[in-house]
Every structure is written in C-alpha cells, then in structure tokens.
Design a protein around this nucleic acid. Structure first.
Lengths: 209, 209
DNA sequence: GTCAGATTGTGAATTATTGCACATAAAAGG
DNA sequence: CCTTTTATGTGCAATAATTCACAATCTGAC
C-alpha cells in the first residue's frame, strides 16, 4: 500500500503495541509468526494485524507468516523508533524519578539527557543515572545545547503550563505531559497527555455496569 | 436517551476527560458552562460534548448551558466515581511508590488500602501514607479481608503474570497493569494496561512525519 | 510436478463514530 | 407579551474503523 494513504491513528497505536510480543518471540527464538498468533498475543483481530501491517507494505509471506526479526526492524523503522530520542524532564518528585529510572525507556532508545527541578535543594544533586539536577532557569539553554527533542513534564499542575511555555520557547518538538491539565500549545508542538486516573475511571465505570 | 442504548467506549473515555476542566471551572467559581467552552477546554467538538452527555440524559438547559456543579456530580455518578474504590498494589519500586504517593488518586476516591512486595527487606516497613508493606504471600488473604477491588501491578514483567494469577484467585474485580506484558486473564476480570513507551512511540512516529 | 495445507493481502460489507444543521426551549430586553 | 439571542438535544448524513471472505501464493510431502 502506498505511503500516500492516510494512516489511521489507531493503526499507529496498534503497530506500537505489536513490538512487545515480537520482542518476546525473539527471546523465545521464534523465527516466524502468523497474524493469528500475533493477534492473539495482543488481543486483537488477525485481519486487523494484517491490514495494519499492509499499510506499510507487504512484510509477510503467504502460507508462511511474518519473519519475527524483520518485522521488528520494520516496525521500529515505521515508528522512527530505530534511533535514539533525547528527552528532558522537569519535576523530580516521585513520578519524575520513577520515569528517570525506568529501564524500558532506554531499551527502546528514549534517553534522558537532562533533568530539571525548581527546588534549590535538589539542584546540583547527582542522580544515579549520571545526570546532575539542573535548575529550571537552564531549560531553555540546555534544550538547545543538548538537542532535547521531547520534554517530559511531571510537575504539579499549577506549574505545568509555565514549564510547557519554556519548553516551547526553547523550540522543543514534543511534550509528554503527566500533569492533569490540558496544556495550551502552539501548533508546531505535539503533546501527549498521560493520566492514570482516566484508566481507573474507565475500570470503575465498567465495574459498575 | 434511554440507558438501554449501547454507549460507545469512546464516549466513556471522553466523559472522564470532562471531569478535570469541570473541576477547574468549579475552582474559578463558574456556575455554568456551554458545550462550546467545555469542548474548547478538552480540544474536542462541541456537538460531541452534547452528544456524549445526552447519552446519559439531558443535563443542560437550552439557551443557557450546563450547571458546572451538577454536571460534575452527574458525571461522577455515571463513572461510578462518586464513591471510594479500594486498591492494592504489588511492586514497590520507584513506580509503585510514585503511584502510592500520587495525590490525584485519593482526591478522586481511589484509595490504596494495601501494598505488597516480595523483597523481605521491604516487608514490614511503614510507609508515609500509613500502610505497612505486606509480603506477596498475603495478597490472597488481604484482598478478601480488606475488600480490595482493583489490583495495581508495578512489578517486573517476569513476575507480573504470577501476581495477576494470585489477584484473580483472590477474586479481584479489575487490574491496572503497569508491566509491559499482555496478561492472560479470566473473562470475569477487567484489565487496563498502562505503557508510557507507547505514548513516546506515538510521538516519535508523528515527529518523523 | 502436482496437490494439500497454510496464511497473507485486500476489496467489499459491516459496524461504529463523528459532526452538521436545525428544531426546540429558555432568558432577557423592550 | 413578543422578539431576539443563545445554546441544548438529536435525526441524519458523512466519515472512519473493523471484520469478513476469498483469491493469491508459498511450502512441503509424495
């Protein structure tokens, strides 16, 4: 299928989802996987898997399935996850620290290259991952100097918009926002919000049905 | 609209999203809000807001808008978020701790009533929120004794399935899984997975476009 | 070399979601 | 009390996403 076709957001989301099972299959030394198997592992429909993948080209072999290794590489290429992405983070309370130490990020090429906090007590402290805590006043400069592409926000909601504005001004490309507010953002900057409470709300709703 | 109509999942997700802006409007002492304003705050379409809300009944007043306070109450009722939900958590590394200390949960009625870890070093320690760390061997008993309804999993992926199985056996109603694996689950138990890497993958994809 | 079995890729049918557009109703002003 | 303004609730059309179903094609066995 041509790369000109508009690819549904939902497809992108699922394609990213396929990575984990594929990594697991790699570990288990499975050379090949069928759409049926992969679908089962992700709890989706096999036709969906095939259609999703066919948006990006025919990676499979009829009668056989998909080469696990090749598919993994292809999907990473599709997602631009086949390279390192440089992250900064602002707000080093519990959640910020948990993200900094989270090993899955680095495994997938998401690398924290700077960590900021407004608390003078924290500034200057050396973190186990080798970074030194920087004051928020340095965000603008360091985003540029260190080529930070994605900015993570784990501050309190009251500070989140100010931090976002500094990120924007510094020319950041995207923001991953853990603060429970809707950020006002310029067109050019992508934002993804993360809010676990929404997951719990959804569970609560379904449980009450 | 009748409560018999099948309500789209997407609607539930959005309705939960409306809570934060409404809380903000409450703080700002706004009595009334229009679908247009609310839509703008959530970056959705005004007609969507009206349709979403109309699934549950006509909460608005034509020519006026929606009473902020009443709508907040109604949505909480809809989501069954108008009461306390009792949570347990297994895996008290950084992420587990960050969730335990996360104030937003409690504000919304999600209350951790037990915390478990398999590390004997951690078991018995008193946590600032007033809980004592329990060994994983006690999960089954305490889920029953303390009426734990939702089980959070923040263990390493290698342990996540075992912990889930213990939760299921104890009769837990739902699971919030932060471990990057797809859990095998009985029909009766709801699962929501949380994986930030997927958010980053999505950003990476869009940035590469 | 042919046939049986397996599994992809995709057009078409189905199902779900979104958003327009307008009838409806409340409020405010004169 | 009538008119204007505002903003909801909703039928319907348009759009989008999912799933079916089957032709295409590869593998391996005999």
């Amino acid at each position: 299928m041509s790369s000109e076709t508009k690819i549904p957001d939902a497809t992108i989301e699922r394609v990213a989802l396929y990575l984990r099972p594929l990594e697991k299959l790699m570990e288990k030394r499975n050379q090949v996987v069928s759409s049926e198997k992969l679908a089962e592992m992700c709890k989706v429909n096999p036709a969906q898997v095939r259609k999703d993948l066919s948006f990006f080209g025919g990676f499979g072999v009829r009668g056989v399935g998909y080469e696990v290794h090749d598919l993994l590489i292809e999907i990473k290429k599709i997602l631009a996850s086949d390279r390192e992405w440089r992250l900064g983070i602002v707000g080093l309370d519990d959640m910020g620290m948990a993200l900094l130490y989270h090993k899955n990020f680095l495994k997938r090429g998401y690398k924290f290259v700077a960590a900021f906090d407004s608390d003078p007590q924290k500034v200057g402290k050396k973190l186990p991952i080798g970074l030194v805590v920087q004051p928020v006043t340095k965000i603008k400069q360091l985003v540029k100097d260190l080529d930070i592409e994605i900015g993570v926000i784990t501050t309190s909601p009251s500070r989140a918009q100010d931090i976002a504005d500094i990120y924007f001004e510094a020319g950041i490309l995207a923001i991953l926002n853990f603060s429970p507010i809707q950020l006002r953002t310029p067109e050019c900057c992508l934002v993804q919000n993360v809010d676990f409470t929404l997951n719990l709300d959804h569970l609560a709703y379904k449980l009450s049905q």
